[in-house]
């Protein structure tokens, strides 16, 4: 898996500044270093959805999610993929070491890791999408705890439903942070048939759309606003 340079730059707050040779070289080194340290793991299952008001329930699990935004995200879906993905501990450990010894490298490697987990999730999603298409389904974008009103308190229950610790070593702290740090949990809706209205098409359009609906208007990583334009 390649770590897209463009995304690394975006996470570093790059806005077309002059990229001096040393910094460019550092970024290349870090991309290679991050790639070598990836211990990717993913676990997912497909669940039927039940709805109760603004709650989404996955009857085969103990999950019951109170979230208008998730309900909206999954409103055309009758099933969803529940997914947990991680880059593993090795990268975390290296970033932590650099945070003590070489801060510049820590920051760049951290950005590489952030770009990598997104790229990894995109890769998994593409495979799932192809599989779903064969069965006449299409996928929504990923929706994760922490987006909109979907609380990160649900992380623990999500990991337990997927047995994410024993399968891929993914854990959550008492304060609901995922560890290893570069990890993602997400819901992906499975919708029957083709896309309908232009509005709906836009909604499955990836990060762009997520950013548009996010309340944080000043986020430096915001896409489609003042931030760097990227392909979704």
């Amino acid at each position: 898996m390649e770590i897209p340079q463009r995304e690394v730059l975006r996470y570093l707050g790059y806005r077309n500044q002059k990229l001096d040779q040393a910094t460019a070289r550092l970024i290349e080194e870090c991309r290679a270093e991050a790639k070598a340290l990836l211990r990717t793991g993913v676990v997912y299952r497909v669940y039927p959805i039940a709805r109760e008001g603004d709650q989404i329930r996955l009857p085969a699990t103990t999950l019951r999610l109170a979230s208008k935004d998730l309900s909206r995200h999954l409103r055309h879906a009758d099933r969803c993929v529940l997914l947990a993905a991680t880059l593993g501990l090795a990268l975390d450990q290296r970033i932590a070491a650099y945070a003590r010894l070489d801060l510049t490298r820590a920051v760049v490697l951290d950005a590489c890791a952030t770009a990598a987990i997104e790229a990894f999730c995109n890769q998994v999603q593409a495979q799932l999408g192809a599989q779903a298409a064969r069965e006449g389904y299409r996928l929504t974008t990923r929706y994760s705890p922490g987006y909109g009103d979907l609380s990160i308190v649900y992380q623990k229950a999500i990991l337990e439903a997927l047995q994410a610790y024993t399968r891929i070593g993914l854990t959550v702290t008492e304060d609901h942070l995922l560890l290893p740090r570069k990890s993602v949990t997400a819901f992906i809706g499975l919708e029957k048939g083709e896309k309908n209205t232009p509005e709906e098409k836009a909604e499955t359009g990836g990060a762009h759309d997520r950013c548009r609906r996010c309340p944080d208007q000043t986020c430096q990583f915001r896409k489609g606003g003042d931030g760097v334009e990227t392909q979704a």
Binding site: L12, D20, T23, T104, V107
Partner: peptide, 8 residues
């Protein structure tokens, strides 16, 4: 300048 340059 961007972040890595500042920290460097």
């Amino acid at each position: 300048l961007f972040l890595p340059q500042l920290i460097q």
